[in-house]
Every structure is written in C-alpha cells, then in structure tokens.
Amino acid sequence: MTSIPTLTNDEADLPEALHEARLWRDNGWTARVIKNEDDDGWAVEMIKQGEAEPALVGPWTMGRDKKNPKPLDTAAFNTLVKTASEVLRRHEQQRDALLHKSLYVMAEAGRITVTLDIVPDEDEPHAFLAATDADGEALARVRVPAGFKLSPTSAAAWIANEFRKPG
C-alpha cells in the first residue's frame, strides 16, 4: 500500500504551477495574456498571489500570424516577474516616503532629528511627531493629526515650544 502525501494548509492554498500559452502561474505570480481593449493588440497582466489587482499591465507581442499573441515562455515569464516585483518595490518605497518624513534642526542643544510617522488607520488616521538628539536619545514624542505638515519651520517651533503638542 502506498501512502498519499498530505498537504499542509500553506501548501494547499498555493495554486499548482500552470504553463499555458496565455496563462502562466508559478512562484506566487500569474501572467495572463489578454485582449488589449484599446486597440487590436494584446496585453499581459501580472498578478501577485493574494492580490486583487495586477501589479503590472503592459503590451504583449503579436505572434508570427499577426493575429494571435506570442505564447508565454519561461524567459518571458521570469522577465515579467522581475519587472512586476520592481514596480511593487517602487510603490512600497513611495508609500514609505509618504508615511515617514525626517529632517534635522540646529537648536541650542545641538542637532535634533525630527520625524513624522503617519499611521494610516481607516477609522482614526494620526501621526507621531518625535525628536531625538545627536546621540539618538529620545527627547519627545507626541501624537498629532495625520495631516500635520512637517517643515523646518514647524519643527523649530515645536522645539522652541519645549516639545509641547502643536496646536
């Protein structure tokens, strides 16, 4: 009697690898060649497993018959995965830059780093304004509205006001 391998919950959730001319699924990504609605050509969309929206949509090459799309292959799929991953990484970096701001202010006590970390909570978005000295020691941390504008002027005013919560 042969034993049948059982799948763990994590393995059961992963789709099997699929390699078809217009649909590839592998390594947590799906590439799908679709009709380009804007013209007579074709497009390819890259969707990361677990995501609802494609990370990348771009034009796809026509086949030799000039009617149908060129079939997906390993090299094309790997290139698409790399490109889509880079797009996601850039979006993440941009999002992080929007949520975290930092600047330096020269004060009587020396150089002070002031940071603003936005918490994009759906119910109650807010931010934390914090200050550290040149040695990295925490000087203050207060909760402020998510729309607080951090600038050299607002940071200097906060420091001059002895780190009291800005009005």
Rank of each mutant, 00 (worst) to 15 (best):
E53N: 14
V57M: 04
V57F: 02
L23M: 05
S102L: 04
M46I: 10
P125N: 10
M46S: 14
A109E: 09
W29F: 07
A138Q: 08
M106S: 14
S3V: 09
S85V: 02
L18R: 13
T30Y: 04
A75P: 01
S102T: 15
A130K: 07
L80S: 15
D39F: 04
V57C: 08
V81A: 12
E51K: 12
R89K: 13
S85E: 01
L23A: 06
V33S: 04
F77I: 12
A156Q: 10
D133H: 01
M106R: 15
T74D: 08
T8F: 03
G147C: 05
W158Q: 11
I34R: 09
L98A: 12
L103T: 05
A155E: 04
K149P: 04
R25Q: 09
V105D: 00
L18V: 15
E124V: 04
Y104I: 08
L139A: 06
S102P: 06
E11G: 13
G58E: 01
K67I: 14
G136E: 00
V119T: 13
V144P: 08
E122M: 14
A140G: 11
S154T: 13
T30H: 06
P15V: 08
P69R: 11
Q49R: 12
R25P: 07
V105P: 03
V105C: 06
S102W: 01
E51A: 09
